[in-house]
Simulated assay, not measured.
Amino acid sequence: METPTLGPDELLFILKGLMWTLILAAIGFGGGIPFGLGVALARTAERRWLRWTATGWIALFQGTPLLLQLFVFFYGFALFGLRIPPWAAVAIALTAHASAFLGEIWRGAIQAVSKGQTEAAHALGLHYGSRMRDIVLPQAFRLSLPATIGFLVQLLKGTSLAAIVGFIELTRSGQIVSNSVFRPLLVFGIVGALYFALCWPLSLWGGRIERRLALGVR
């Protein structure tokens, strides 16, 4: 009986899973950016009901596991007779998850901007939109960049949970190949190396930016 081997077809299957991991991370992060900005602005708004709504949203998605969120979005739509593909449920869940975390990161960055600058802009007669667009948000974006990159690393690794609803991304593709060639250590070593190749450069980049910001403050 011929022993199964890890050949080009199996490696190509793993690389296809890697492609879907990147796509899911891009969708979740890209969708989380505008929604997260909305959450951050609501969290720092003057109207109390906006702050409470944003606080509830953040508490919901930061206080529950991503795995549970994937389950709810995947099976929750079915309760209302809506059948959506796994990738759509995962994309919605990752976007909602990212919006809560990015919103809280950016909320902290917005509040870290010196109040004297916003007061000066207000005294000059600049309306809220101009103050945020031209003064507060550019500085907040710079301050939040290391934490934002750190969350992107977490999101890349979090896409591995999509396998629980039947989506074939990098981790799930590695599991399938491992079950077919009976070489789990080799296969998951390759999968781990691919995750490392994605996440480690981002971590280094975030650390470098953080050190530059720290030097700029001195």
Rank of each mutant, 00 (worst) to 15 (best):
M1E: 01
M1S: 14
D9I: 13
E10V: 07
L12T: 14
I14K: 00
G17Y: 01
T21A: 03
A25P: 05
G28E: 01
G28V: 02
G31P: 12
G32D: 02
I33T: 10
F35N: 07
L37A: 13
V39F: 01
R43V: 10
A45C: 09
T53F: 14
I58C: 08
A59C: 11
L60D: 02
L60V: 15
F61R: 07
F61D: 00
L66C: 06
L68M: 11
F71S: 02
V72H: 03
Y75F: 14
Y75L: 10
G76R: 11
G76W: 04
A88H: 08
A88P: 06
L94M: 11
L94C: 10
A96D: 00
L102C: 01
E104L: 12
R107S: 13
A112C: 08
A112T: 14
A120D: 03
A120G: 04
A120T: 07
A120M: 05
A120C: 08
G125Q: 01
G125M: 03
Y128V: 10
G129F: 08
R131L: 11
M132V: 15
M132Q: 10
R133Q: 10
I135T: 10
I135A: 09
L137G: 08
P138V: 12
A140N: 11
L143Q: 12
L143G: 13
A147C: 08
T148P: 04
G150V: 12
F151Y: 15
V153R: 04
Q154F: 12
L155C: 09
K157P: 12
K157E: 07
G158V: 14
T159H: 06
S160D: 04
L161K: 07
I164P: 08
G166V: 12
G166S: 07
F167C: 06
F167D: 02
I168C: 05
G174D: 00
S180P: 03
S180I: 13
F182M: 05
P184Y: 10
V187W: 02
F188E: 01
G189S: 02
V191I: 15
A193N: 03
L194V: 15
Y195Q: 04
Y195V: 02
F196D: 04
A197K: 05
L198F: 12
S203F: 11
W205D: 01
R208I: 15
E210D: 13
L213S: 11
A214F: 07
